[in-house]
């Protein structure tokens, strides 16, 4: 920080403001986006959505079709930390996935 001026109280307030804005950024939900690609099989993608995210078979099918027809789908939304884990898991399954601020 650039300034040492101000009372203890003022510094306290500044710190609180910064802290809460940092916390708000960390808590802002993130989307896990899966992109269409010509390689991954429809049955495989549906299976990953069902077993990894615990989506119902109809929801998994709906998301898979959205990826296939629209080119992308938001398959999960959550904290930054959770979204990072999900994107890495999708890459482990060989799906093209990205993290996106909601």
């Amino acid at each position: 920080m650039s300034s040492t001026a101000g009372s203890t109280l003022a510094r306290g307030e500044t710190d609180l403001e910064e802290e809460s804005s940092v916390r708000a950024a960390a808590q802002r939900p993130y989307h896990v986006v899966v992109w269409n690609d010509p390689v991954n099989l429809m049955s495989y993608v549906s299976w990953v959505f069902r077993t990894y995210f615990g989506h119902s078979s109809s929801r998994a099918h709906e998301l898979m079709m959205q990826v296939h027809e629209k080119g992308r789908a938001v398959v999960a939304t959550g904290s930054r930390e959770q979204a990072e884990r999900d994107v890495t898991a999708m890459h482990h399954y060989g799906l093209q996935a990205t993290l996106e601020e909601s």
Binding site: L41, S43, W47, R50, T51, H55, S56, S57, S58, R59
Partner: peptide, 15 residues
């Protein structure tokens, strides 16, 4: 994966 989908418990298509 067809075999593995078959093995998943049936959720009635709507969970």
């Amino acid at each position: 994966f067809s075999a593995m989908l078959e093995a998943l418990p049936d959720d009635g298509g709507d969970g």
